[in-house]
Design a protein around this nucleic acid. Sequence first.
RNA 1: GCCCCCAUCGUCUAGUGGCCUAGGACACCACCCUUUCAAGGUGGCGGCACGGGUUCGAAUCCCGUUGGGGGUGCCA
Length: 474
Amino acid sequence: MSDRPLRLRFAPSPTGFFHVGGARTALYNWALAQREGGTFVLRIEDTDEARNRPEWTHGIIDALAWIGIAADDPHFEGPYFQSHFADAHVAAANQLFEAGLAYYCDLTAEQVQERAKASGKPGYDGYSRDRNLEPGPGRVLRFRVPAGTTVVTDLVRGEVSFDNANTEDFVLLRGNATPMFLLANVVDDVAMRISHVVRAEEHLPNTPKQQMLWEALGEEPPAWAHVPVLVNEQRKKLSKRRDKVAVEQYRAEGYLADAMVNYLMTLGWAPSGETEIVPWSQIVDEFRLEDVTHSPAFFDIKKLSAFNGEYIRKLGVERFIELCAPYLTADDVPWPREQFNPSVFSAMAELVQTRVTRLDQVVAMVDFLFLTDPPIDDDAFAKAMSAPNAIALLGEVIGAYETAEWDHDVLKETLEAVGAGHGLKPGKAQAPVRIAITGRSVGPPLYEPLVLLGREETLRRLRAALERGGGPAA
RNA sequence: GCCCCCAUCGUCUAGUGGCCUAGGACACCACCCUUUCAAGGUGGCGGCACGGGUUCGAAUCCCGUUGGGGGUGCCA
């Protein structure tokens, strides 16, 4: 730790989407920067030219903004691009070479491997340490790892010591003279006066190397903090291949940013008090690296959804309607787009709100209101219609609804009275009507939709169901 | 193989030697409420990996075992 001004950095490499693990790391950095009046530096590590596209950077900035890390916030600095500092990386490498702290080696990667295999010791064996090679094409610059022990002081893990004998003379500059990650990362952190490096645990094994680099460059190393990785159900690090890790995807499915942020923060840490659902302001007040757990955390979509459901329910109904709009007017809605009626949805919104845990679920919740003939779940239909008296009941309901006052309570009482006539409780009585109207056996409450659909449409669907169920044409 | 990290209910966690008969949340189960489904309410199930120490006292400290994870690139 040092007395330097608090400067944290988040340094993702652009890969086309924003990883939830990266989001959590960014949030940890952000919470600290906000409370301590520090600076959050965004640096895009785009040195791997093979995978690097400008639009991916926009994706990262956009995703960060979504979780509340806004580029126009005074605590935010950047983005910087690592590729722009290549000269500085090479200059630092030269400095190390001139000082005798690094040396060139002409062994190819294959040769290094062969030697390792032959000797039985893994890694590079220091073959060119004392050969005094000059720079040249194909020659890599390697760091001369000193003897001794490197002790990394980590804010979440305490002191971790590494025997330098286990650290090979790692590569600083490739054979084509371009800088490697370890070097570039340190040189940039030095240049940007980074005081705290808060990143995922997978970087812990790199840390002794980077700390040696800081020292070789004549700098006091930053405070380190390695937070546990996020894992899947198999307890493996979340991977792009097997797991759903893209923040953008969760966003598209209708997870609320606040819910995502809150949930992410509870992975490896917990706010005080009996509830985990807390506002960001409380998180900022309470979050401390020293309190971060030491073991990996399972990213549980079920729990995320529970958080999301809670956040959705807390929304004012107007806000809920607003947030649902994109899903209801998307290109892939199941109904003919011109049949969508916003005021009908608004009338239903409150009933829908307690029944979804993701915004994209609202579509299936109200589709029957905008579909001329909602698809009917065959099994559910068969089951509802095979109940004793179901057909008779449907016929009677049709008769009653032909003249009944078109009012929620009247509709309810009428249907229940017909049901009672057949010895059916309200729950049973509404089943055939529900399937006739919505095509499903479950859904939002029944009578509000009936009112919205109107007498004519309600009767049309009821008659169609009666016919389909084999009853007399009514 | 080697290096490093880690270990409390199924999961995320609270716990920093006595407030622990181990608390909360998600999930699950039951009941209540109820026009289905939710939501809400009440209750329940369920854990300190194991073995040794240290101590009057250990989930908390130490050692070992076992089990997990991460790293081991001229990737980042």
